[in-house]
Design a protein around this nucleic acid. Sequence first.
DNA 1: CTGTATCCGCTCCGATACTG
DNA 2: CAGTATCGGAGCGGATACAG
Lengths: 120, 120
Amino acid sequence: MQKNPNKCQFVGTLDTIVGKWKPLIIYLLLQGEPLRFNELRRLLPGITQRMLTLHLRELEEEGIVKRVIYPQVPPKVEYSITEYGMSLSPVMETIHQWGAIHVERKKLTNQITTSNSADL
Amino acid sequence: MQKNPNKCQFVGTLDTIVGKWKPLIIYLLLQGEPLRFNELRRLLPGITQRMLTLHLRELEEEGIVKRVIYPQVPPKVEYSITEYGMSLSPVMETIHQWGAIHVERKKLTNQITTSNSADL
DNA sequence: CTGTATCCGCTCCGATACTG
DNA sequence: CAGTATCGGAGCGGATACAG
């Protein structure tokens, strides 16, 4: 399918970290502290149970996130970053920094775009 | 809209570079050489005219890509990276490297046993 | 050569309800 | 507490045809 090796690399990485909430989930878990399901939910205002579950499952399948179930009542599940997941740290850090630096510019761009929407 | 500043940074960056072909377009133009529309098309096997146009327009609006029209017959349009776009270089490089390192693992995870290491 | 214009399927994601 | 199931809308991207 993918003949272009350069494309493979970008697609591979981005498929792993792209998703409406994935970057933030990874970012939160990269802080080091394991987090419970509802703790993540509180740290991600607006996320639905469904999306949190789905994204955590995907990250688990990728080997980025480790899921530990404590057999208790009520249930307790902790999510933490894996060694493999930690290798994403420089990627996330670079993305985070670029965003921080260029957020202002993006705001301007969006304002221009918005004001030009009159020509519909 | 986005209450979480950390989220803003990730979303801001990823919105800029995410898209089915955007990373590769940026990567190609980061090589330095201005490229014509059809040159890009040839370098991106499988892309449609529509998507190439749309992605280029978005990148242009973001200030990542510069579009120069030469008033000729037949038409000639060259796309090149802007100074601002060059600031994405470390981001793209980091993503590219992580992908290159972890492509093999991803193949195993996805149970794709093509083992076609030739495209590395 | 460098685009636009339509149509349309498919995936992502939200909302909501239900469960061990 | 930590999920699963189902429905449905919105938007991305592909296929195709047309145009300056």
